[in-house]
Design a protein around this nucleic acid. Structure first.
Lengths: 246, 246
DNA sequence: GCATTTCAGCTGGCATGCAAGCTGAAATGC
DNA sequence: GCATTTCAGCTTGCATGCCAGCTGAAATGC
C-alpha cells in the first residue's frame, strides 16, 4: 500500500494516516512505536499464532522503514512473542501449556517477592498502592456478582499490575510486565472456560491484609498461593482443549 | 582507525585483525558478537562505569559497522548495563547499592522457584544436575580451606548457574542469567572485603539435600535463605565503601 | 511419469548515507 | 572583561541499498 508515496513526506513527519497511531507523545522513537503496535496486535490476536510476515510488509503498514521494525522484532523475539526465521520471515509464536507453566512459575516467584517488598515498605508507599489494590478487589467482587467477566478480568489485571508497580523494584516491574503480558493472552482465551473465579476475591483480600499488617512472609505466601491456585485451574483447561494456536 | 581501508574488504570477510575475535562459530551474527564482546568487557571492567563512547568508535574497534553495535547496545540497555544518551553517546552504568538490592530480590525469588521446580522434577533430570551441584559445593569447601577465594567464586557461580540451568524452565534461566550477570560485577569487587563465606557450604548442602529428598518447599526456602544471607552481607559493604563506580 | 537438478525470487543482516538535535566553544555586543 | 548569541561538530535514529542464503517450483534427464 502507498508504495508510490513521496519520500519527502516520510522523512518529515509521521506518514501513516492508515497506520494505527498512539503518538500521544510528540516525538517518540519509531522503534518504540513499532514495538508497542506489534505487541498490542499480538495480544489482540490481530496477529494470531502461526501468522507469518516479512519485515517489509509490516514496515509498509506502519509507514516506516525496515530498520525500526527490525529492532522491535529483536525485542519481541527476546521476550518470546515471535520467532525470526532467518530467511523465511517473522513467525508469531503459539503459547503452549508448557509455556504457560513456565510463565506461572515466574509469576508466582516474582509477585511473591513484590508482595514481600510491599509489606516491608514505608507506610506512605504502601497506602497509595493499597488503595488501588482494595479498589480493584472490590471491583472484582461486584463484577463477579454481576457475572461480568470482562470487567472482572480488567480489575484483576489492575490488581496484579499495581502489586508489582508498587513494590518499588524496577527490575521486578519489568520482568513481571514481560511475563504477565504473555499470560494475558491465555487468560483471555480461557476466561469463559473455567469455573467462576469465586476464590480470587478472598485470596486478594488475604494479600492486602498481610501487606497492611506489614507481615512480609505472610504477604509473599498469600501472593504465591493465589498464583498457584490460578495455575492449577488454567493449565488443565489448556491441555484439554489442546491449544496449539492462541 | 583504518578509515581509508577499502570497503570491499569490509563487506567480504571479517576485517578486524585488531578486533578481539571469538569467531569459533563459523557464521555467527555480527550483532551477537558485539553483544558478547561488550558484555564481557563490562564484566571485566575494561569498560568501567562512567565510561562513555560513541557507537562509531566501538564499531571501528570491532571491525563492523554501527548497525550491529546499535542493536547490541539496545539489548544492553534493556538489561541495565548501559544507558543510551540520545545524542551524547553510550554510558556504562554504575551499580548502586539500590540496584544490588533489586537484583538480590529477583535472585531470591527466581532461584527459589528454580530449586522448587528442580525438587519436583524427574529423577533423571535431577541426578545430573545434583552431580554438578554437589561437585561445585565440594570444590567450594576445598577452595575455602585453601583460602583460594578466586576458585571459590568460580565454583559458587557454577553452583548457581547449574541450579537455574537444571530447573527446566527457560524463562527462569534467561532472567537469572541477565540478573545474576549484573551481580557478578559486584561480587568480584567485594569478594575480598567481606567475611569469609564459611556458611555458604552448609547452605548449599541444605539446598542439595532438600532437592534430593524431593521436598520442594524446603528446597525453595533453603535457596531463598541462602541468597538472603548473601544479600545481608553484601549490601552493607557496598554502602560503606560508597561505590559509585563498579 | 518420476526423481533430480537448477535457478529465480524473496528473506533478513549489515553497510552506508542523510537528517535532526544537543553541546560547547568561539564570536560578538555592550 | 562579562554576558549573550550563534554555529560548527559531534551524536544517535532512521532510510536505503547491497549481499548471501534458503525455498520452492520449473525444467531437465531418464
Amino acid at each position: 500500500m502507498a508504495t508510490s508515496k513521496a519520500k519527502a513526506e516520510m522523512q518529515s513527519e509521521d506518514a501513516g494516516a492508515d497506520a494505527p497511531q498512539e503518538a500521544d507523545a510528540p516525538q517518540e522513537a519509531r522503534a518504540e512505536v513499532a514495538y508497542r503496535y506489534l505487541r498490542n496486535a499480538i495480544f489482540a490476536n490481530e496477529l494470531p499464532a502461526g501468522f507469518q510476515a516479512a519485515e517489509n510488509e509490516i514496515a509498509a503498514q506502519l509507514g516506516m522503514s525496515r530498520t525500526p521494525v527490525h529492532e522491535a522484532m529483536a525485542r519481541l523475539q527476546d521476550e518470546g512473542f515471535v520467532q525470526i526465521l532467518p530467511r523465511k520471515g517473522i513467525l508469531v509464536r503459539a503459547l503452549s501449556p508448557a509455556d504457560l507453566l513456565e510463565i506461572y512459575d515466574v509469576l508466582i516467584a516474582i509477585e511473591g517477592a513484590a508482595a514481600e517488598r510491599l509489606a516491608e515498605g514505608s507506610d506512605e508507599a504502601r497506602s497509595s498502592t493499597l488503595d488501588v489494590l482494595q479498589a480493584s478487589t472490590d471491583a472484582m467482587a461486584s463484577a463477579l456478582r454481576a457475572s461480568d467477566l470482562e470487567t472482572w478480568r480488567i480489575a484483576d489485571e489492575r490488581f496484579h499490575d499495581a502489586l508489582v508497580e508498587g513494590c518499588g523494584n524496577g527490575r521486578i516491574k519489568r520482568m513481571a510486565a514481560t511475563v504477565s503480558g504473555q499470560s494475558h493472552r491465555a487468560r483471555r482465551l480461557t476466561l469463559h472456560l473455567r469455573p467462576l473465579p469465586t476464590a480470587s476475591t478472598a485470596e486478594h483480600q488475604a494479600i492486602i491484609d498481610a501487606i497492611q499488617s506489614g507481615d512480609a512472609a505472610a504477604a509473599g505466601n498469600a501472593a504465591r498461593a493465589h498464583r498457584r491456585h490460578a495455575r492449577g485451574q488454567l493449565v488443565p483447561i489448556l491441555k484439554r482443549i489442546n491449544v496449539h494456536q492462541l
